[in-house]
Amino acid sequence: MSVEMTSIFGSGFMVLGAFIIATAAIGLIKLPDVYTRTSAVGTAAGLGVSFMIIGVVIFDYSTLNLIKGIIAIIAQLITSAIGSFMLARASYMTGGKPVETTVPDELADQS
């Protein structure tokens, strides 16, 4: 790829990633309860950080960097999933109620 194309694609991915992280932050204010907020942060953890990593790989491309980037994306997805699950579980166990508009709430019906 030529230098301009590299710059355009890399910058595009980085701006998109930063934009998704910023929308996740707005979601922290807009969304009503801790579970929906965890979902919003999930977009930043997955797509946002992945786009930033892809941007770095495009900017200084080498085979080693590509392999490291793929490993970093996979590790980021798995670890953020574990983190979200543990946080949601801890919130539920410490009595965090979902918002009233949570229409089928079979967890509350069950216990």
Binding site: G10, M14, G17, A18, I21, A24, A25, L28, V34, R37, T38, V41, A44, A45, G48, V49, M52, I53, G55, V56, F59, D60, Q76, S80, G83, L87, A90, S91, T94, G96
Partner: peptide, 25 residues
């Protein structure tokens, strides 16, 4: 609740990764 704070702290960590990526480039 502390759950909300922890979720927001998680997001700040992802912002840190993004900032390291940009500044590194």
């Amino acid at each position: 609740s502390s759950g909300n704070s922890a979720v927001a702290g998680d997001l700040i960590f992802f912002v840190f990764i993004g900032a390291v990526a940009v500044l590194g480039v």
